[in-house]
């Protein structure tokens, strides 16, 4: 038997022996797919792109589930991978060009901003401000948690949030922005 055959057999045995692992991963996926996709969609401004990126992040988690599944919060790992992938893709040529085209649409009409308006307004933010805003409002992270993840001072995150809020308020025509956190 050659080496490749040995290795593939090992893989198949692993699959047969893991029904609990599948159920565990599926439950984890169901709990987190919506919220993480929402974050990435808000970041990249494109639903299909967001779904692709998040699917890739979950797939990477799945291929390492023995390790990732043992973490206190595997969703943090998936979210981080998805963000890294999104950042990488945003900086690539074709997608960046589409992104920049959307960025030109910066003025939003109407007192009741819907999600399209919000995505357009988000794309106009500085990348770090945008990330902080999304992590704060969609991922429900505190300024301290964002600071820890981004390895910056908490005061820096507060500045990002304040600037992000101000820019969003201007673009979304929201008059009252609460001074927090």
């Amino acid at each position: 038997m050659n080496a490749a055959a040995v290795a593939v057999t090992t893989t198949m045995n692993r699959d047969r022996a893991a029904p609990d692992r599948r159920a565990e991963f599926d439950a984890f996926y169901a709990r987190n797919i919506g919220r993480i996709t929402a974050q990435i969609r808000a970041y990249v401004g494109d639903h299909d792109e967001a779904e692709d990126l998040v699917a890739e992040a979950f797939t990477r988690a799945l291929t390492r589930w023995k390790t990732v599944g043992s973490y206190d919060n595997p969703a943090t790992w998936v979210r981080r991978v998805a963000w890294n992938l999104a950042t990488s893709r945003l900086r690539r040529g074709a997608f960046a060009r589409r992104f920049l085209r959307r960025q030109r649409i910066t003025d939003v009409e109407g007192p009741q901003p819907d999600r399209v308006d919000l995505e357009r307004a988000l794309t106009a933010l500085n990348e770090r401000h945008r990330k902080a805003i999304i992590l704060y409002y969609i991922a429900d992270m505190t300024a301290a948690e964002i600071a820890d993840q981004e390895r910056v001072a908490e005061s820096t995150v507060r500045t990002w949030l304040a600037r992000g809020r101000a820019a969003l308020a201007e673009r979304l025509r929201i008059d009252e922005i609460k001074e927090q956190p």
Partner: peptide
């Protein structure tokens, strides 16, 4: 006053999560 952006993002998250 409540943070008006919080409501905007809550609606956004609910809508986009449902679209997965």
């Amino acid at each position: 006053n409540p943070d008006p952006l919080a409501a905007v993002f809550t609606d956004y998250t609910d809508d986009t999560s449902a679209e997965v």
